[in-house]
Design a protein around this nucleic acid. Structure first.
Length: 221
DNA sequence: GACCAGGCACATC
DNA sequence: GATGTGCATGGT
């Protein structure tokens, strides 16, 4: 079938949103971490938690010179939980971190390059099989630590998309992810910036309590 | 003092 | 498959 001469409306709208967000906020320089390993640790610690609290936990780990897969894996649970305490849910996150570290060490010798060389789809499945790593955490690791072209969906993304008529309310993770991957160029840098900008918009404009803020750069004036 | 934040697993129906 | 609940800190 011949391609339509008219642009796909969803693709068009997604591109407009991106342009407006980028013009308003500029580049976000994500992920805010020094190394890919730090991204992976941060991706687990930030689950349902304010990033500022995660930064405190990561600072504790860095100060103790423990931002290393083997060192962290050997650390007793209580000590690890104590160090990551500011990030909240510290007992559960200490366990999740250990689960991930075991996987990372046993399957990839704690080597980012080995992990990056793995097929993206297969690696995603592997990550999802680790207890404590769900879709958002897996995708954050794939995109921000390993430069894989995977779109990260979070609560802000779903909220913004439903508020702007791109998805119905209650759309699944897969539906939301597909919206972006099927309507945008498969580009790591674009996916990186787009997700970061959506988070920035969500944070700055309190989307939970104010569905249509007049100041929001996406609100039609 | 209440509400919220860059989720996830598990139990129950 | 859908829904409810526990996990916890720190900022506003």
């Amino acid at each position: 079938m011949a391609k339509s001469q008219f642009p796909n409306p969803k693709s068009h709208k997604l591109r407009l949103i991106y342009q407006r967000l980028y013009k308003t906020f500029g580049p976000q320089h994500w992920w805010p971490a020094k190394t890919p390993f730090e991204v992976m640790v941060g991706a687990i610690l930030t689950q349902n938690t304010n990033w500022q609290n995660v930064e405190k936990a990561i600072r504790n780990l860095r100060k103790a010179e423990l931002l290393d897969a083997h060192k962290l894996y050997r650390l007793p649970h209580r000590r690890l939980a104590q160090l990551i305490r500011p990030s909240g849910y510290f007992n559960i996150k200490a366990r999740r971190l250990k689960n991930f570290l075991k996987f990372y060490i046993e399957n990839y010798k704690a080597n980012v390059l080995k992990m990056r060389a793995q097929d993206t789809g297969r690696l995603r499945e592997e990550l999802l099989s680790v207890n404590g790593i769900g879709q958002e955490t897996a995708d954050s690791i794939l995109l921000y630590a390993l430069d894989k072209p995977v779109f990260v969906v979070d609560a802000y993304t779903k909220r913004i998309c439903s508020r702007h008529g791109l998805l119905c309310e209650g759309a699944s993770y897969q539906d939301t992810q597909k919206l972006f991957t099927q309507n945008l160029k498969n580009d790591v840098q674009l996916f990186n910036e787009y997700h970061a900008l959506l988070v920035r918009l969500g944070k700055d404009f309190c989307l939970k309590s104010r569905p249509r803020c007049r100041m929001c750069p996406l609100t039609e004036k």
